[in-house]
């Protein structure tokens, strides 16, 4: 019964919503190539289930709104005072048990329906069983950047999460375990699932099974300090081949290229190595992102800017240009050192 009514209401609400969202996100507010992380454009089971549920709830609350606001509008127009001279008092009515009972009982029924559908969805998403084929990723939040560990694959990626495509025939969901190294953060990629917080000393879980390849953006959803705004998230949903290739690359140690030995020397003699890891070198710091495969990323500093050599150089010169208040200090390198380090970093594919 519930399910049927659910579907029915959904149908009506969906077309309306789609239209509104389409207008809102595309026609009216275009600003160049858009990538809007709309919760009404889901691409993974948890997000689509939530989307369906939201349409159902929208329809019910919309119905309540139209009814009650209609009543208010009627009362305003029907019972306004006509003319200042009309001073006689209207009939005084103090209450009515029947009517009051009616408007207590009907909301109770609505609440029951809303609660049951909601509870069903909570259990469906939160307690979903984990299939054998699932990929495990441990996400660690840091002040203003993300760390992604793939324990079974031996990979430590940064800021840009790569996950395989999942389809009903070949389910390959990704199960995330979420932790924090410092303060609270929240993992939120609206098109893939709802958000969940990353909390020190408290392990959380989340799963996604993206159905379309592509790039999905999101960002940290819990205020975590100065640069909370630039703790952006990018999730790349790869086809099986792409994903395998990416994994293969990430598993390699850092490229070692003698043409940039000076740069590497600067990197290893300045404080860089205290905070950053580059596998195969003396640099094993854990405070900042792992730079072993820096050039495999499209952006720098969790999306603060695009990953181009100029930006890389400027970032190293003074991170505040892109991310004022980030926890990487400006290292006061000379121009020459900067060029060398940039050249070195640019080889870390």
């Amino acid at each position: 019964m519930l399910a049927k009514c659910f579907r029915c209401v959904n149908c009506a609400a969906r077309s309306l919503c789609l239209l509104a969202v389409f207008l809102a996100s595309h026609a009216l507010f275009a600003e160049g190539p858009l990538s809007t992380p709309s919760i009404f454009a889901p691409a993974s089971t948890p997000a689509s289930s939530i989307y369906e549920l939201s349409l159902f709830v929208l329809a019910i609350t919309g119905g309540i709104f139209v009814t009650v606001a209609g009543l208010i509008a009627y009362v305003i127009f029907r019972f306004r005072q006509h003319g200042q001279d009309d001073v006689s008092e209207p009939a005084q009515i103090y209450g009515s048990t029947q009517v009051e009972l009616a408007w207590t009982v009907i909301p109770v029924l609505i609440v029951v329906v809303l609660f049951l559908t909601t509870a069903r969805m909570i259990f469906a998403i939160q307690d979903a069983p984990k299939p054998k084929s699932a990929l495990d990723v441990t996400v660690v939040g840091h002040q203003f950047w993300w760390e992604f560990n793939y324990p079974k694959l031996g990979i430590r990626a940064v800021n840009e999460l790569h996950v395989p495509l999942s389809s009903p025939q070949d389910p390959k969901p990704t199960f995330l375990t979420l932790l924090s190294a410092d303060v609270m953060h929240s993992f939120w990629v609206p098109q893939l699932s709802g958000k969940i917080d990353l909390i020190p000393n408290h392990v959380n879980n989340l799963w996604i099974d993206p159905q379309h390849p592509g790039l999905y953006v999101g960002q940290c959803g819990q205020f975590c300090g100065v640069q909370h705004a630039k703790m952006l998230l990018r999730v790349y949903v790869d086809t099986p081949e792409q994903f395998a290739a990416w994994v293969k690359n990430q598993q390699q140690p850092a490229v070692s290229d003698d043409r940039v030995a000076e740069g590497r020397h600067v990197f290893e003699t300045q404080a860089c190595m205290n905070c950053h890891t580059v596998t195969g070198t003396a640099a094993t710091g854990r405070f900042g992102p792992d730079l072993t495969h820096l050039m495999s990323r499209d952006t720098l500093a969790s999306g603060a800017t695009t990953n181009t050599p100029e930006n890389l150089r400027e970032w190293t010169r003074n991170p505040d240009t892109y991310k004022p208040g980030s926890l990487m200090p400006a290292m006061q390198l000379s121009d020459q050192q900067l060029d060398q380090v940039t050249a070195y970093l640019a080889t870390l594919r």
Partner: peptide
């Protein structure tokens, strides 16, 4: 509606 709030929260 908790699942929806997972999207809407913050």
């Amino acid at each position: 509606v908790a699942p929806w709030d997972w999207q809407l929260h913050n």
